[in-house]
Each structure stands twice: as structure tokens, then as C-alpha cells.
Write a protein that binds this DNA or RNA. Sequence first.
RNA 1: GCUCCCGUAGUCUAGUCCGGUCAAGGAUUCGGGGCCUUCGACCCCGUAACGCGGGUUCGAAUCCCGCCGGGAGCACCA
Length: 511
Amino acid sequence: MPELVDRLAALGGPEAAPPPPPRTEGGTFPDLPGAETGAVVLRMAPFPNGVLHIGHGRLLYVHDHYRTRYRGKLLLVFDDTIGSEEKRAEPEFFDLIQGDCELAGVRPDAVFYKSDRIEAQYPWAVRVIEKHGAYVCRCPAELLRENRAAGRACAERSQSPGETLDAWKAMLSGGFAPGEAVLRLRTDLADPDPAFRDRVLFRISDLDHPRVGRKYRVWPMLEFSWAVDDVELGVTHVLRGKELVIEDRMQRYIWDLLGVRGPPFLHWGLLRVREAKVAKSKANREVRSGLYDGWADPRTWSLRSLDRRGVSMEALRTFILSFGLSLSDIEVAAETLYAENRKAIDGATVRRAFVADPVRVEVEGYPFDLAAVPLANHPDRPELGTRPVRAGPVFYLARRDVVAHPGEEIRLKDLVNVRLPATLDERGPVRATFVDRPNRRLPRLQWVGADGAVPVDVLEVEGTHRTGLAERAVAEASARQILQFERVGFVRVDAGWTPGTEPVRVVYGHP
RNA sequence: GCUCCCGUAGUCUAGUCCGGUCAAGGAUUCGGGGCCUUCGACCCCGUAACGCGGGUUCGAAUCCCGCCGGGAGCACCA
């Protein structure tokens, strides 16, 4: 039957074979509405109160995907308005976040700061006021909330544009203390969505800003500032998480009021990596207190920490893009990322022997000619060569392995077969005996020759340390090199480690 | 409570707009086997899904209605 279809197709008739099914590797990304190749402008807007973590991967790579697809421009706009007492911009993150983008391979075409654009907001506020679209409200925050929930107007809602303008000027000139007055949008108090009723547009704050200090007291809220900046920066499409959908409506409402045309919005759903309990404030606190060893501490799940663990940013990109632009909430296991990373690094990663919780074992009758042996750097890739490994007669084996096989014959992997003692004397050396050389199907144990063994400190994902001994070649690794500790997993030599010093410090990546 | 969004195997995803080629494809996980003297990789095999109930139709994952479940928003944070 397929042949018939093919023949009909060759004739170009109406029975022509259908196009091949659109099978894809991962998630889908819809076309950006009205997008023109070469004319797309996107913007990412992180708040500078922490380094970028695995969850920001979606922000980075979704934007980068569309930038590439439409050969557009990507702006990095620090959303550093004044925030709140609890959520404040902090100076070091401007550079750290730019470094994170660099690390992730998503270099912005331009960088802006919202704090440089505060004065640009004010004329727009006046335009909204003149359209009778806003009023200055002096209710305490709590009353404002109650009224909103009840759909009740406060006395000031009936201000005329002229009165509002006067009050607005008073706000700007310092006539109100923080919390005493806000500029609110006039929507519809009967709006079915209580969240949308008369939201705040500007408020007063005298907090110290890391870039502009106390230069401004009247600060825009996120929605208003983006109603202004998405237009003034020429953004053609806004991509954001779905927790910000109500902000779309706000922006559109303001644009409609002013007769301005703004860009369309697209969203993605929440992404959670099961193992990554990302708590930015906790991470910040622990880094500052010194409990975490910096922004690349594995417990932060920051991009820096993933890099430190040997997770390739290209693997992260593939992982993130596999979810598409779906609006569903995603909870995925880190294992999926690890599987992606294996594909990226396995072929180029050399194998090394490492033994945790080592026990010294002397092998009686060990053959003299096997004091050193060459071993392959990679089981499937002979082109990666071999390295000489010092072997017996004295070895270190993992305690766990030794106690698991009392009195049994075991194989020292790639080497010889020996018989372990029936009991383990905690004081004296463990004495095993040589049996023979041929590979038989015995339990295969990882070993490190006592001659030349180097101590290793493994920093694990939970922030704990595991110590053990590794073969000599591990001491010759370079800082930042990725190794595979056989039967343990992939590790990366820590960037802060000085070659030649002991112990060798490595960071655990994943199995 | 109100508003909005989302429901395809353990997990993520393709297919849903334009009903038949979907007795539902891919990835990952898990189980079994092969091979490589390890972890892993690779090869082979296997388990496993259209949330539920109605309706329309010759035919529904796809259209309609109802329900159930999950998430987000309801800050003078972003």
C-alpha cells in the first residue's frame, strides 16, 4: 500500500503522500504574533536581589530561543524600582546577574536599568491623570485592601483630574510621607476580578536605592513602569511567567486609555525542579553568614552552582527548551537534567578511581610485575588514551565493599583476583591473598594503589563533604576539569583548588 | 471566597486550533537482557497515558456541556 501511495505521489495527483508527521524532540514554541524576522525586540527583566538560579533558566533560554528564531534583539532590563522593605535591590547583583547571563551563553544586546528611567514615567502618569484614569488615594494600605475586596469606593475616587494633578504634584514635591498617598488607577470597582480593582500605580518610598540613592521618592509599580517602558524601549513581544498575567491586563488598560499601541504578551507556566528547593532569601542569608560557601554553593541551585558541578549550560538549555512555552505547571526531576548532561559530557570525560571511607588492604603473594598497570581513560573511547596507574601489593578499598564480601574471592577491577579475609581486624592491616589473574565473573571492586594515593574532598549537593582516596592522576587534573569517579559519578575539580595541593577538592555533579 | 490558567504513562513532552493517517509518537525513569572487566554509555525487549461523566458524529485525545483535580493572582513586591 505505501508503494501505491508513493506512485500516486510521483504522479502529483490528489492522492499525493501526506507530509511526514511532525514529530519533534521536545516542547513547542508558538510563533510570536505579528513577528517580523529582524524586527523583534524582547526584554528580560530580573530583579537584582539574587543570582540567577535554575528556575531563571526558562527566562534566559525562552528569550534566547525567540531572539535566534527571529534574529531579533534581546534587552536585559534590571527591574530595579525601589521594591519594599522586604524585597530590595542590592548592588552586587547587577554585575553578578550579567555574569550569569554570560555563563548561560545568553548575552543581551543591551542593558538598561529601570532606576534610570523613573523620570520617564512621570509624564505618562500625567497623561493618565488627564484622562481621568487615576486618582490620589490617601487611605491607609489596609483600608485600601478592604475597600478593594468589598468593591467600595473611597472619598477621593471622585477627584476631578485637576484635583488629582494637584495631589500628584504634592506627592512629587514631598508633600506626603511614605504610605500617606498613592496614585491609583481608576478601573471598575465592580470588576469581577478583585485583583484588578483600582490598582496602585505609584507610591512613595524614601528607601535608599543602590544606584540612585534617594533621588526619587515617587516610584512606579511594575505594571505601570512596563506600560511605559515596553513602548518606549520598542519591545515588540513580552514573554513572562504566568504569575504576571494580571499585569498584562493592567498594561493594556493603560494603553487603551491613552490610545497607545503596545506589544502582545506570551506566558510560560511555573517550572519547579523537584530537588531544587529554591529559597532566594534563605540562600542570600546563608551566603552572607558564611554557612554557604558563596553564590556557587550547590545548595543554592544557582546557575553558578550548576556550572561548578559540571552541568553544561547547553545541557541546561536543551532541558529547559524541552518544555516548550506550555502554560502548564511543571515539576520535573533533576535526573532529567542529569541525563541531558551525560549526553553532553560523557564522551569527553576521563575515568578515575576514587574510594570513599578507605581501608588499607595488603595482598600477600601479589605479583611483582603488576606494581603498575596502564588503564584506559574511557572504556569506549580508545582515542582518549591510557594512564599509568600504580597498583599493589598494598591497596585501599572501600570499607563497604570489604565488609560485604568476607572470606570471598573478589576481583580488583582491571587487575587480579584476591581472597578477602573472613574477619576485619580494626587495628591491624587487612590481609588478603592473591588468587589468580584471569577475568572471572566475580564481584568487581574499585581500588586505589596505596603508593601514590591522593586524598580527595568531595563537596556534595547537600553541602556536606565526603573524603576518600583517589589514584595519582587525580592530583594532576586541572582546576575546573570534569572527571568521572567510577562507581560514584561525575565530579568537577573545584575552580578554587590549586593544582598540586592536597586534598584535591572536587564538587559532585550527578550519577 | 472571587478571577484567570492548566489537566496525554512515575515525570516531561508531541498530537488538540482544522475530528478519521493516533489500536497515541519521543525523552526520562523503572524492570529484563546483551556488550564493554566499574558508574555510565551503547544495543535489544518490556511495563505504562488521553482526569471523570454526558452529548454531537459513521467516527472524538481533538468539538459542546457538566463535574472533579492541580496551579497562579487578589501587596503601597517583582
